[in-house]
Write a protein that binds this DNA or RNA. Structure first.
Length: 209
DNA sequence: TGTACGATCATA
DNA sequence: ATGATCGTACAG
C-alpha cells in the first residue's frame, strides 16, 4: 500500500454514479472524531440517479432532504431511515444533476476497537460494517455530517483511493431493499466476507380485488 | 393536519 | 418472520 494514499478529487467523482460506484470499490473512507479514527475499505456500493431512477430519493425532484445529491460531486449525503439508522452516500455528477453512490459495506482496516465500541452487537470483525447503517455507524457519521466535502484537504471525513480493482473481479446485481427497478443491476461488490446478503424490497400496499 | 412507508438491523 | 421508531412526502 502507498505511504500516502491518494485522495479522490471532485473531478473524478463528477461522473455517472454507475462509474463512480466502480471507482470507489477498493477505496477507503476514514473518519476522525474526538473518539479516534476509523477507516473502512469499501467492498460494496450502489448507484442512484435522479428523475430516471424510480429507486432514487431524487426521483420526484429536489427537496430539503435530497438537496445534497443535487450539489457538486465529492460531498457526503447522509440520510435517516426506518426511524433509527443513518446511511452514507458519495455524491457524483455535477452541480444541478442528482446522483450518488450508497456505501453499502466495507472492512474495518483502522480503529477496530473503536468500531466495536460503536457497534457492540457485532459478533465478528466482518460484521462491523456489513450493511449501510452499520458502515455509517462504525464511522460515527450522522445527520451532522450531511453535505461535508470529502475532497477538502482538512476534512475530518476522507475518501482515499485504493489499489486498482480488476474489472473482472467486480460483481453486479440488483440493489438491496428496493421494490422498484428490480431489473437494474446497480449494486456492485468485490469478494469479501463483509458483503451484505441480497434482500428484495417489500411493497406493503396491495391492490385488493 | 393526518398518515403510510422506508436505500435497516437485531432478535427469535 | 417481526418489532423498533420517526422523518419525509404527499394527500386531503
Amino acid at each position: 500500500m502507498p505511504a500516502t494514499p491518494r485522495r479522490f478529487t471532485e473531478q473524478e467523482l463528477a461522473v455517472d454514479p454507475v462509474d463512480a460506484a466502480r471507482l470507489l470499490l477498493g477505496g477507503t473512507i476514514e473518519s476522525t472524531t474526538d473518539e479516534g479514527v476509523v477507516g473502512v475499505r469499501i467492498v460494496e456500493v450502489e448507484a442512484y440517479r435522479g428523475g430516471d431512477d424510480p429507486a432514487s430519493h431524487c426521483y420526484r425532484g429536489r427537496t430539503p432532504r435530497n438537496d445534497v445529491m443535487f450539489g457538486p460531486a465529492g460531498r457526503l449525503y447522509v440520510y435517516f431511515v426506518y426511524g433509527m439508522h443513518f446511511c452514507a452516500n458519495v455524491v457524483s455528477l455535477t452541480d444541478g444533476v442528482p446522483g450518488a453512490v450508497l456505501l453499502r459495506a466495507g472492512e474495518v482496516v483502522t480503529g477496530s476497537a473503536l468500531a466495536h465500541a460503536r457497534r457492540p452487537s457485532a459478533r465478528s470483525h466482518a460484521e462491523l460494517a456489513k450493511g449501510p447503517a452499520r458502515l455509517t455507524g462504525v464511522l460515527g457519521l450522522d445527520r451532522g455530517h450531511n453535505g461535508v466535502d470529502l475532497t477538502e484537504p482538512d476534512a475530518t471525513v476522507r475518501l482515499l483511493a485504493g489499489d486498482p480493482v480488476d474489472e473482472a473481479d467486480i460483481r453486479t446485481g440488483p440493489r438491496v431493499g428496493v421494490a422498484v427497478a428490480v431489473d437494474v443491476p446497480w449494486r456492485f461488490w468485490i469478494d469479501s466476507p463483509a458483503v451484505s446478503t441480497y434482500r428484495r424490497g417489500t411493497r406493503r400496499t396491495r391492490v385488493v380485488g
